[in-house]
Every structure is written in structure tokens, then in C-alpha cells.
């Protein structure tokens, strides 16, 4: 228990350092004491720095925190629900649904550009298309979950939906011109930095709703660690909890994909990284650690993606995997065991 508290505190400290670095580093380097002054509302001599922090770095850092922790929570929920270490937010086909929505918007543009005109390529239309895509997939999954009693079947169906949608995206890509294809590919790289304050607000709202659903079934998640039959024998209403868990995951993963593009890896990996650290699978202890851990990982990836000191940025989706995957592999090989 004490070890777990120490671990959480350690994670929080790391996270705070990460937040500090993320606000201070970038194409322009801002000293950390100036960052603090700006955050506390003390006026500084350099109003450019103030502008950069308030309108650019702060929303981006918040986005990283929300998306990192949200994806990590949804990964945890899926792994517990499916009692499968390979599960992550993508298994329900949500990000693929969002991708399909955006692909239809950007690459099927010829079909309805006449109707929407200028609106077509605005940021909001992409967010809207991504949300619609993941909501439709979510509804389909929920309907299936009502019918299919077996959770493993649900997992397979999710994977099928994912490969179906990516096939449709390929077909669209094949028939689209280079310019449209480029737009889509840039979206699929993911980006944390394009959000204005209003969008960050909306993302936080989604995050809170997702967390709310997760908290409602927090206790039952522990019962589900023993499998569905045990959970049922302990009085857990399986269907109700399954739907709450799917809703929570969909809101986290759907909103993340809508605002920042499909971000791989975080949802799958963070729960495993945290389990190496925390000695128990008790969700009351796991959940806060996973929130801190997911947020920290995302912040670090974002700092790397910014290539501090330079003007160019790497696609965030590539950074999470390129820098994250070796870490996970190294950890698992060193510990020789997947704790699940």
C-alpha cells in the first residue's frame, strides 16, 4: 500500500515536471520562472511569450493531458472488460470509425463539395465527421453488445469492424486525388496543437463525462477481474456495466480521435506500464495511476514531437509508437513477464 502511494506521488512529480517542460520548451524556449509568472497572471516584460503560453502552449499541454489520460483509461477499461491484455480503445473499432468519417469527408469530397462548399475543410467539419464516425460505430457496438452475450465475440466483432472500415478507407484513398489523400494522411498523423480554447473546453467536458461513467462502475470493474461468471454471482448486473464501460471508452477514444486524430499505442501500453509499477490490479489504485501515467507519457511524446529548439514538428502518432514501443518492449523483456 505504502509502495503504491509512493509510486503515485512519484508519477505526479514526473507529470508536473513534464508539464513544466512542455510549457517551457518548443520552437522558442521560455525560462521556467517566466512560465510560472505568466501562469500566475504576473505581467512579464515579454508579451510575445505570454501570448505563446496562453494561446498556444497551454491549450496544447492540456490537450495532451486529457488525451493521454483518456486513452489510457479506455485501454484499462477494455482490458478488464475483455479480460484480454491485447485490448485497447481501438478494439471496438472506434478510431477506425472516426477515420472513416474523416476519410469520407476529405476524400469523398467530390461527392458533396457542392453542398457544403467552404465548410468542407474547416477544422470543425473534420471534428464533426470524426465524431459522427465513432458515434455510429459505438451505436453499432452497443446494439451488438445487447444481442451478443459473449464478450469475446464482441471483441472479434470490434476487430472485424475495424478492418472493414480501414478497407473502405483504402478504397476511398485509391480513388482520390493526391491533394485529398495528403489532407487525409496529415490528419491521420495526429496533432495536439491545433486546438483553440473552446475546443479544449469541449474535450474536457467529454473527458469528465467519460470519467464519470468509469467511476460508476469502478467497484464492478474489480469484480470483473474474476471473469463474468464470478462477477454475476457477486450480484453485478453484467449488461448494464458492459454498456457503461463501452460508453465510457467510446467517449474517451471518440473525442480524442475527433480532436487530435487517431493516436495509437497509448491506450494499449499505459495500463501495462503502470501494472509493472503498481502491485495490484485493484482499479481504485490503478485508475489514478493510469491517469497520471497516460498524461505523462503523452506530454513527453509531445515534447519530443516538438523537437525543442527547431521549427519543425514530428507527427505525434509516429512519436508515441517510435519512442513508446521500445520502452514497453524493454520493460517486458527485463521483467520477463506481462503482469495482467
Amino acid at each position: 500500500m505504502n509502495r503504491n502511494i509512493a509510486n503515485s506521488l512519484g508519477l505526479v512529480v514526473l507529470l508536473l515536471i513534464g508539464i513544466g517542460l512542455s510549457l517551457s520548451l518548443g520552437s522558442v524556449s521560455i525560462p521556467i520562472d517566466e512560465v510560472l509568472k505568466i501562469l500566475l497572471g504576473i505581467s512579464t516584460e515579454n508579451s510575445t511569450w505570454e501570448y505563446i503560453i496562453i494561446n498556444y502552449r497551454l491549450p496544447k499541454t492540456l490537450t495532451a493531458l486529457l488525451i493521454g489520460s483518456g486513452l489510457a483509461i479506455s485501454g484499462l477499461l477494455m482490458q478488464t472488460l475483455f479480460r484480454n491484455p491485447l485490448a485497447g480503445p481501438y478494439v471496438l473499432g472506434l478510431s477506425s470509425g472516426a477515420s472513416l468519417g474523416v476519410a469520407i469527408l476529405l476524400m469523398g469530397a467530390g461527392l458533396f463539395s457542392g453542398i457544403f462548399g467552404e465548410f468542407m475543410f474547416s477544422k470543425w467539419s473534420i471534428i464533426l465527421a470524426a465524431s459522427l464516425g465513432s458515434i455510429l460505430v459505438m451505436l453499432a457496438v452497443l446494439a451488438t453488445a445487447q444481442k451478443v452475450k459473449d464478450t469475446m465475440t464482441l471483441l472479434i466483432i470490434g476487430l472485424m469492424v475495424a478492418s472493414l472500415t480501414s478497407a473502405v478507407v483504402s478504397v476511398l484513398a485509391y480513388f482520390s486525388n493526391a491533394e485529398e489523400l495528403q489532407l487525409y494522411i496529415f490528419w491521420s498523423f495526429g496533432s495536439l496543437g491545433n486546438l483553440a480554447w473552446g475546443e479544449v473546453g469541449l474535450l474536457s467536458l467529454c473527458w469528465c463525462i467519460g470519467l464519470g461513467f468509469a467511476l460508476i462502475c469502478l467497484k464492478n470493474l474489480n469484480a470483473l477481474l474474476l471473469g463474468e461468471n464470478y462477477a454475476k454471482s457477486m450480484g453485478v448486473k453484467l449488461n448494464r456495466n458492459r454498456i457503461l464501460i463501452i460508453l465510457s471508452t467510446s467517449i474517451f477514444a471518440g473525442s480524442a480521435t475527433a480532436f487530435a486524430g487517431p493516436i495509437a499505442f497509448v491506450g494499449l501500453a499505459v495500463p501495462h506500464l503502470i501494472r509493472q509499477l503498481v502491485t495490484t490490479n485493484d482499479h481504485k489504485i490503478l485508475l489514478p495511476n493510469i491517469i497520471f501515467g497516460g498524461a505523462f507519457l503523452m506530454i513527453i511524446c509531445d515534447i519530443i514531437a516538438q523537437l525543442p529548439g527547431s521549427d519543425s514538428t514530428l507527427p505525434i502518432n509516429a512519436v508515441t509508437s517510435i519512442f513508446g514501443a521500445p520502452v514497453v518492449i524493454w520493460l517486458l523483456v527485463r521483467k520477463r513477464k506481462l503482469k495482467f
Binding site: L225, L226, Y230, R275, T280, N281, D282, K339
Partner: peptide, 10 residues
Amino acid sequence: LTNETVSKQL
């Protein structure tokens, strides 16, 4: 029950 995938990480 036997044959349930019970988490042993508790």
C-alpha cells in the same frame, strides 16, 4: 469455478 480467466494480479 475453474476455467475462469481470473486475474492473479491481486
